[in-house]
């Protein structure tokens, strides 16, 4: 009895491990995607499914840097869709992502946001905030949106003068929460994060020379299952540049590469 149970458990384990093909033998493509694409990706996957019967697309979300490490460690991910070019480029260097599959599929824009009823400031006037007022950004070493925020503040020449007033959030959601609770006077997130958030105000979108362009970059990996996934993975990456996909990106607040 115990032996049978153990066997059944083993069988279950194997079932769990045997990803890649579902019951009907259809190929599954897993997409390692940045958390900031949580809203748009399911819509893209749905649209892709309407056109292509064949590969089923399964998103896996995480911080771009974290996903990169997991792919290097051999996580079975066929397509990457990251919020910044650096992690994709590193994966090309390490031979995990196929170089000529790399593609910028959309741009995201940074926004300076504030709580309702908070002080009115813009990117150029952050230093005019009262001395006790804080500004929340993602931890630049962990969160791509935070790294972009740092770049923008550096380009504006305010990074050093704002030292001691920047509260680092562990991800973009934490930054958003600080602002929504009104504990900080301003925060920096992507425009796409605040599309449906009611209780924050966009103080100013990041436009102009100081604003870093937050590229959304796709690429297909060499994969761990070899050639059977390469074709379907590539077809999904190519789909991301079709007119239909571009419309979906645009409708969700992204900007498009020319």
């Amino acid at each position: 009895m115990r032996r049978r149970a153990a066997l059944a458990l083993l069988g279950l384990l194997f079932l769990g491990c045997h990803r890649g093909k579902n019951e009907e033998g259809k190929v599954e493509v897993s997409v390692g995607a940045a958390s900031s694409l949580r809203v748009v990706l399911p819509k893209l996957v749905e649209a892709f499914g309407r056109e292509h019967r064949r590969p089923k697309v399964v998103p896996v979300y995480g911080a771009s840097g974290d996903l990169r490490k997991r792919i290097q460690d051999g996580a079975p991910i066929d397509v990457v869709l990251f919020a910044a070019p650096e992690p994709v480029d590193k994966l090309i260097e390490t031979g995990n992502v196929i170089a000529d599959s790399r593609k910028v599929v959309a741009h995201n824009r940074l926004a300076l946001i504030g709580p309702k009823g908070g002080p009115k400031v813009g990117w150029h006037s952050l230093e005019t905030l009262a001395p006790g007022d804080k500004i929340a950004i993602g931890d630049p070493e962990v969160v791509p949106a935070g790294a972009y925020a740092k770049k923008a503040l550096q380009a504006l020449g305010q990074w050093d003068s704002l030292a001691g007033r920047l509260v680092f959030g562990g991800d973009v959601a934490a930054v958003l929460a600080y602002v929504r609770r009104g504990e900080v006077a301003a925060g920096v997130v992507y425009m796409t994060e605040i599309k449906d958030v009611a209780d924050v105000l966009v103080l100013e979108e990041a436009r102009g020379a100081f604003a870093p362009r937050a590229d959304v970059v796709a690429g297909s990996t060499k994969g761990v299952e070899g050639a059977s996934h390469a074709g379907p993975a590539r077809s999904f990456v190519e789909f991301l540049s079709t007119r239909e996909a571009r419309e979906i990106f645009e409708a969700n607040g992204f900007e498009l590469p020319r």
């Binding site: 804080k134 931890d139 962990v142 030292a163 001691g164 007033r165 920047l166 680092f168 959030g169």
Partner: peptide
């Protein structure tokens, strides 16, 4: 106190960051 480098990042918070 949050994680504000140079102001509230005590050793435990610096470890976490």
């Amino acid at each position: 106190a949050g994680n504000i480098p140079g102001r509230t990042d005590t050793m435990p918070i610096a470890i976490w960051g």
